[in-house]
Design a protein around this nucleic acid. Structure first.
Length: 437
RNA sequence: CGGGGCGUGGCGCAGCCUGGUAGCGCGCUUGUUUUGGGUACAAGAGGCCCCCGGUUCGAAUCCGGGCGCCCCGACCA
């Protein structure tokens, strides 16, 4: 993309409403613009990030055997009355009425809807297990939205649901998702730690929240220092091998990790003192087993092998896709701007033409831009070098290909790695080879 | 939802207390200049001063009501 023809409105100064670093940087780098409290428009570069994250989620969900669907954002109140949640949910649910005065709502989650779909479509135990997910906008009317996309009212989320014939199957689905989540976050270039979470009335140990460790996190977290170094999404584990799933689950849950809500002083005391870490975390995912809560309330049953009707065991699995963009920035930035992990950067490289209008540098930049195509953002603005450097650092693409008249005369460019700050004078082929890696 | 703050060109802010129909920096446009880390000079464009009502000869400024946004706390399937 040519920057001169793109809507990537970077800002030199920070809008007053943005307090925390990810919010400031997302506004300044031209990724988003606020439309209402907790509601944001995603501009071209921001949308690329959102898509990149969503696509990693998709690929890992597919690997784990989940099927993608897309359900509506607007739901009927009737559905929620069936489960009893219409009244239980409270003012966080955005309730609306259509022209016929029918009660509707903007979905904060989709357990009811998918359970209803399953009820209409699945009659036999032979059709289970099923694992389905969608990536869709949700709305929760937070009392106090804040921190930009980290705590918005409208948010983009992957929500997945499992349906199994029995508890054993549900546990397997749960472990499968935990593995998928660890792989998903690993691919995004962040460390997310699974932490014991509240299971409510269900009990057991089948709810985990996934937290990215960052000083600005909303939750206080306690964890074993091993989480800072161990392999979190190991490819060696096989989804189709139950023993692998169990081994992985044991590995992830045998080390202590809990949010302050679930912190257990007795268990904490057993962690070797020099291994204890206290910090803050940003919740970017949660997995949850809730048994037959919805299948019973909504009368979803299948006929089992013995002819008896069985309410499927369910679980749900969320990943905050829009929240992840902010969370990743919280975990990966410096004074100059964002430092995108490779896998989710809006562009692989910025091409900085330091002498726009100079035949030699222009030609060299065009050549590089042709070679990289969609992966590159070509800063072809008629602007000062300093401005281009500052914007490139702010936008945080992994590589900067700096083309100035000095090097261009020798067909050389300077390649800067955003994360490490390393610079090298290279010929074009060598630079392209590094960028494409 | 309790407590606090703010709303003035695209962004950051001053002006408000002590009414006399707007100002600064950045950005933007044009020209010159500069040319590897947000250059300098000059000339410009751009404002329903959040909205409605009241007081007054006169309201960005005072008074009343409303709306919006932010911060602390509580809240956060």
């Amino acid at each position: 993309m040519r920057l001169s023809r793109s809507l990537i409105p970077t800002l030199k100064e920070t809008p007053a409403e943005a307090q925390i670093v990810s919010h400031r940087l997302m506004l300044r780098a031209g990724l988003i613009r606020q439309q209402s409290a907790g509601i944001y428009a995603w501009l071209p570069a921001g949308l690329r990030v959102l898509h990149n994250i969503a696509n990693i989620v998709r690929e890992e969900q597919a690997r784990a055997g989940a099927q993608e669907i897309l359900m509506p954002t607007i739901q009927s109140a009737e559905l929620w009355r069936e489960s009893g949640r219409y009244d239980a949910y409270g003012p966080e649910m955005l309730r609306i009425r259509d022209r016929h005065d029918r009660e509707m709502l903007y979905g904060p989650t989709n357990e009811e809807m998918l359970t209803a779909i399953m009820r209409d479509s699945v009659q036999s135990y032979r059709d289970l297990p099923q694992m389905l997910y969608q990536i869709q906008w949700k709305f929760r009317d937070e009392v106090r939205p804040r921190f930009g996309v980290l705590r918005g009212r409208e948010f983009f989320m992957k929500d997945g649901y499992s349906f199994d014939l029995d508890y054993e199957g549900a546990v397997e689905s749960y472990r499968r998702m935990m593995l998928a989540y660890m792989r998903t976050f690993k691919r995004m270039g962040v460390r997310a730690v699974p932490m014991r979470a509240d299971t409510g009335p269900i009990g057991g140990n089948l709810s985990h929240e996934f937290h990215i460790l960052a000083p600005t996190g909303e939750s206080g977290v306690f964890y074993d220092a091993s989480f800072e170094t161990i392999e979190l999404g190991d490819d060696a584990y096989d989804y189709e091998n139950r023993a692998d799933l169990d081994a992985f689950f044991d590995r992830m849950t045998s080390l202590y990790a809990a949010t302050d809500e679930k912190h257990d002083e007795a268990a904490w005391a057993k962690v070797p003192e020099d291994q204890r870490r206290e910090g803050r975390g940003i919740e970017v995912g949660q997995i949850f087993y809730f048994g037959t809560k919805y299948s019973q309330a909504m009368n979803f049953a299948v006929v089992g092998p013995d002819g008896a009707r069985v309410h499927p065991e369910m679980g749900s699995y969320g990943i905050g896709v829009s929240r992840l963009t902010g969370a990743i920035i919280e975990a990966s930035h410096d004074e100059a701007g964002i430092i995108w992990p490779d896998a989710i950067a809006p562009f692989r490289a910025s091409i900085l033409n330091l002498r726009q209008g100079d035949q030699v540098t222009d030609a060299l930049c065009e050549q590089i831009y042709d070679a990289l195509g969609r992966d590159a953002l070509y800063d072809d603005r008629d602007a000062r070098a300093g401005e281009k450097f500052a914007d490139a650092d702010l936008m945080g693409h992994p590589w900067q290909i700096i083309v100035g008249p000095r090097g261009a005369a020798k067909s050389q460019v300077e390649l800067k790695h955003r994360r490490t700050g390393e610079r090298a004078e290279l010929d074009i082929e060598a630079a392209l080879a590094k960028v494409r890696l």
